[in-house]
Design a protein around this nucleic acid. Structure first.
Length: 1029
RNA sequence: GCCGGUGUGGCGAAAUGGCAGACGCACAGGACUUAAAAUCCUGGGACCAUAAAAAGUCGUGUGGGUUCGAGUCCCACCACCGGCACCA
């Protein structure tokens, strides 16, 4: 503040921001819109009136991740990406594109709601105030957004369509045959679905938006459930509160149906490698096999589903080494085991039900019969009728010898108490404890055994919480010799660890050697009989060669892992006890929240069934509340609004709301046609901005060139860019970006959008750290407020600095001194154009002038007398065209920092010119304009005597390579790779002349005289290297 | 542990396999000024040497390799940052 202002940015910046605003300079034109003839875009492209798609130039859609307008206001991280996209938007306008560059507000969210709970202030009020602040701050940076397309996710005109898209999901199913989403009306019902009730249940189970009663991530502190993606290390992403598992009725979105597409289509889009990897990891595809293990007969089979346990494994080749089995504590089979162990059976005469569903020992229903008849059936087989359960008049009865039943039940019951206790312990643990803290493996034996299908061995069934109920089948076969976790458990509980894979390097599969390879003889008689050896030391988890893996029908011995997998899998398939399977880590998206400040579901409930509200009745507005807390019964806050919830026909509204991600899943589509009241987006607008349609001009460097460079693996048909460039932070790698791709694909399948992928090219800006190199945070006190920087250095300097810090994608620390550097640069640019004396006069006038009149005083500032309308010298043209080339290439590659340095190089050079040709300065201002638009417009205006149209649509200067050709070349000469001299030589010199000149150099001679030249390299016009011996 | 990224002056950084450190910050010296600020000019990787210089040697995280030539390509390792993490 103490120093003199480099140039009057405080007047220039508001002046041009206002100018752009009133002229609607940055309005993007949709096909069919009426273009005023005077608009600079119309002038540039010779258009006016209603324009057809075919008349419009090619589009360029450049998008920022819209912000959540928090109470803290903008921080310097936000404008980093916004500046980058703004520079490119301005550049692309100059290159002749119709540029769509919008901004909006992701305004539903927890902070406003929590503030509301504390203060009673309605979240809408808080949100509106925050949006106002954000908008003011963003606008003060001079970004070229088309504000006529501003969206706000909390605006009923917006969330009407969020709800509408939800209904699209609700009314669709994923058809595996066509591999896409289809309207629910195309669903075919299985033969046993006959009644309306059955059909409804089937239909509801197939919808892309469905209701599920399952354990979910419940965060007591936030009073809501969270998606898997919102839980980090067992704590909520927002606030870091503990999260526990709790079964609740919730809305889910079937994103898993799209797992394969979400994975494969990454190949065709231009995202950073690491971001794609993050998505791939999150989707977590793994190939393996499902294998069925029969449960060893304990006399207690009761249902078909309980007869076998299905496991998932990625290493079916190790099946011969499975020595036990582990079920997740939540596995439903455990319930059956427990039920059997604890039921108090009624036998024969004790049964009171009128009818009986008889099941045999294998769990099959033998038939439903009146009680008397059922008893007769039992008597005829010398068995007992044991009642397992009853509903009303009907009982389910097992046909079995009661004595044997009681014995088996007692056996199970011995372990039953262990199981119950273990399950209770597990349930008490939070996710955090179950992962981070539970380093030591735990588990209990169930008392039951399974049969290994490859060798008929009886292996114990355990339950342990290191097996997750939600992945695969919730059950595994444990192969301790070849799996870290199984190894730990086996060691802890003294279970055998027979090896079935050997390292090929060690050739350990040569059985004779195995003892020296770390295998030792086992004492366990079962394993000894089968294998005779167990692995010592540590598990061998890599791929290798199968050993000890044979039965009378199949042998894997000697096969490398990949082949062994294939062989055993087809054997299992032939036997009908297994099949090749693909599993994903990705879970369905938990889509409901127990909150107020979100989109209400357009769903009503009646008699336990849900149905959609009519699309015509949308938007469904949330009720007005004064108390935003959940109800005392733990229901969501919407349940407080009794009038809102209850409808006249006796049905009630869904009281959950949608998560914050809903609004951001499709906002980029709303921008295309933001004020459309009849559709989420008009068809023509969608296909012009997102598709390949439209565009009469062939523009060099257009997106289509980029699309052509797609990798061969791309399987997107048709190849479409969608959003041409999307810039935002990595924090959305697996949340917003995965969800939005999912919604887009559903909309694509249903014919609402024309591209399978929404964001063709995506770039992550790197985090900006505080001056101390630490993450900016209030508690560290290192937060930089853009408003402070702006008032001291102006928006142009701020923009310039954000880009000059380093490559966009990199993490980099803020340094206010660096802002001064680029600010000084702008000062030099200013002085390159401006007459000193007139500026002094302006400054004096300004000190006395009325504040409102100061803008007018800019007129006092005169151009420097050295600026003349003369032909540029070759040297001046060379300086200019060097800059044009560098800035153009750097902008195409998003290298903003080096582009700015090229502008500095030009300025340093041009400052020294005695005469400055207008034409050269004009081109320079065009290069500068995307970076520092305000000063560029002001100087452009002065240079053109105040008569020119806005610089924004002036065609980008072309560079002429002919002007860059040098007469004299400076060629470095190396001897043995070390620089010894630089020779000057005419550009026309051929290699022989260069060689002669190099050898003639005195400095070079010192190093080559008296030595033999072994090799001589000449890179034409570049370099000479002489290798001597 | 797994996956990805990054290591270059005092600092932010730049360099199609071809003059390492462009551009900027900080710093030092000078000009202007009564003085300061601002501005303009000059300097600058380290070492060695010197009155000063020239010349020379070393130098892009570490160790190897390929090459006439490596910050850049290959192999092995180290450090930091980000993501995932009992995913069978």
């Amino acid at each position: 503040m103490s120093s003199r202002r480099q140039y009057p940015f405080h007047l220039i910046e508001p002046k041009w921001q206002q100018h752009w605003d009133t002229q609607q300079t940055f309005k993007a034109w949709n096909p069919g819109e009426v273009l005023p003839a005077a608009h600079p875009f119309a002038v540039r492209h010779s258009l006016s009136g209603p324009v057809a798609v075919t008349q419009l130039p090619p589009k360029y859609y450049i998008l920022d991740m819209f912000p959540y307008p928090s109470g803290a206001g903008l921080h310097v991280g936000h404008p980093e990406g916004y500046t980058a996209t703004d520079i490119l938007a301005r550049y692309k306008r100059a290159r002749g594109f119709n540029v769509l560059h919008p901004m909006g507000w992701d305004a539903f969210g927890l902070p406003a709601e929590q503030y509301a709970i504390k203060t009673g202030q309605h979240p809408r009020k808080t949100t509106e105030a925050n949006v106002t602040t954000f908008k003011r701050q963003i606008q003060s940076l001079g970004f070229s957004y088309d504000w006529s397309r501003e969206v706000d996710t909390t605006d009923p005109g917006y969330f009407k369509w969020t709800q509408w898209i939800f209904l699209q999901l609700y009314n669709a199913w994923f058809n595996p045959e066509t591999n896409k989403a289809e309207p629910i009306s195309t669903l075919k019902y299985p033969a046993d679905c006959t009644t309306e009730e059955q059909k409804r249940a089937y239909r509801d189970s197939k919808r892309l938006a469905y209701v599920s009663e399952a354990p979910v991530n419940w965060c007591p502190e936030l009073g809501t459930v969270l998606a898997n993606e919102e839980v980090i290390d067992g704590k909520s992403e927002v606030g870091g509160f503990p999260v526990i598992r709790k079964p609740m009725r919730q809305w889910m979105l079937r994103i898993t149906a799209y797992a394969e597409k979400l994975l494969n289509d990454l190949d065709g889009i231009d995202w950073s490698h690491s971001l794609k990897e993050m998505q791939r990891n999150w989707i977590g595809r793994s190939e393996g096999a499902e294998v069925d293990f029969e449960i060893a007969d304990c006399g207690l089979r009761i249902a078909e589903s309980g007869k076998r346990i299905r496991v998932f494994t990625t290493r079916p080749d190790t099946l011969f080494g499975a020595t036990y089995m582990v079920l997740a504590p939540e596995h439903k089979l455990i319930d059956q085991i427990l039920a059997l162990a604890t039921i108090k059976p009624h036998v024969n005469g004790e049964i009171t039900a009128k009818t009986v569903n008889i099941v045999d020992a294998s769990g099959k229903s033998v038939g439903i019969k009146p009680l008397a008849e059922a008893i007769e059936v039992a008597r005829s087989q010398s068995l007992d009728l044991i009642q397992l359960s009853s509903v009303g008049e009907m009982a389910v009865c097992l046909l079995q010898d009661f004595g044997a039943f009681r014995f088996a039940q007692q056996e199970l019951a011995k372990h039953g108490t262990d199981i119950i206790r273990y399950r209770e312990e597990v349930a008490k643990k939070s996710d955090l404890e179950r992962t981070e803290l539970a380093k030591e493996k735990t588990g209990v034996f169930t008392g039951a055994y399974a049969i290994n299908p490859v060798n008929g061995e009886k292996i114990p069934i355990w339950i342990a919480d290191y097996v997750l109920a939600t992945y695969g089948t919730g059950a595994i076969m444990a192969v301790p010799a070849h799996d870290e976790r199984d190894w730990e458990v086996a060691k802890k509980f003294n279970l055998p660890t027979p090896p079935v894979v050997a390292s090929p390097q060690m050739e350990a599969f040569k059985i004779d050697d195995r003892i020296t390879r770390g295998w030792r003889e086992v004492a366990d008689p079962i394993s000894r009989e089968r294998i005779g050896y167990t692995l010592d030391g540590a598990p061998f988890v890599e791929e290798g060669v199968a050993v000890n893996s044979a039965n009378s029908e199949i042998s894997l011995n000697g096969l490398p892992t990949a082949e062994a997998k294939a062989k055993i899998t087809s054997w299992l398939e032939a036997k009908g006890v297994g099949k090749k399977t693909i599993n994903y880590k990705l879970r369905d998206w938990l889509f409901s929240r127990q909150r107020y400040w979100g989109e209400p579901f357009p769903i009503v409930w009646k008699d336990g069934h849900h149905s959609a509200v009519a699309a015509e009745s949308l938007p469904l507005q949330p009720p007005d509340l004064t108390d935003f807390k959940p109800t005392s019964t733990g229901e969501p806050p919407l349940a407080r609004a009794k009038d809102w919830v209850s409808l006249v026909d006796g049905s009630v509204r869904e009281t959950n709301t949608m998560p914050q991600w809903a609004g951001s899943c499709w906002y980029y589509l709303r921008y295309l046609d933001a004020r459309n009241g009849n559709a989420f987006c008009g068809k023509e607008a969608e296909s012009y901005w997102m598709g390949t349609g439209g565009g009469k001009l062939k523009v060099e460097g257009s997106r289509l060139d980029t699309a052509a460079a797609q990798p061969a693996t791309c399987n997107l048909q048709p190849v479409t860019p969608g959003v041409d460039l999307y810039v935002g932070g990595t924090e959305h790698a697996v949340l917003h970006l995965l969800y939005a791709r999912f919604w887009h694909k559903v909309l694509f399948d249903l014919g609402h959008v024309s591209t399978p992928e929404p964001f063709f090219k995506l770039v992550n800006q790197g985090l900006i750290l505080g001056e101390d190199g630490q993450k900016m945070s209030k508690s560290r006190g290192n937060v930089v407020n853009p408003d402070d920087i702006l008032s001291e250095y102006g928006a142009d300097a701020f923009r310039l600095y954000e880009m000059f810090m380093g490559p966009l994608e990199m993490v980099k620390p803020w340094n206010t001194k660096g802002v001064e550097g680029v600010y000084r640069f702008l000062g030099r640019v200013w002085r390159m154009f401006i007459n000193d004396a007139s500026e002094t006069e302006f400054e004096q006038a300004e000190t006395t002038a009325d504040a409102s009149k100061r803008g007018e005083l800019l007129k006092l500032i005169q151009l420097d007398a050295a600026i003349k309308d003369v032909e540029a010298t070759p040297a001046q043209l060379k300086t200019l065209h060097t800059a044009i080339k560098k800035v153009t290439e750097d902008l195409d590659a998003m290298r903003f920092n080096t582009a700015i340095s090229a502008l500095m190089v030009f300025t340093n050079e041009a400052m020294t010119w005695e005469t400055k040709p207008v034409s050269v300065l004009r081109s320079f201002l065009q290069l500068l304009a995307p970076f520092a638009p305000h000063i560029a417009e002001e100087l452009w205006d002065k240079l053109n005597g105040g008569r020119a149209t806005s610089l924004v649509y002036a065609p980008w200067p072309a560079f002429d390579p002919a002007l860059l050709v040098e007469d004299t070349l400076e060629i470095p000469v190396q001897v043995n790779g070390k620089l010894r001299d630089v020779i000057k030589i005419p550009a026309t010199a051929d290699n022989a002349a260069i060689e002669a000149a190099a050898k003639a150099s005195e400095k070079v001679k010192l190093f080559i005289d008296g030595k033999t030249i072994k090799k001589l390299i000449i890179v034409p016009k570049k370099l000479v290297n002489i290798a001597v011996g």
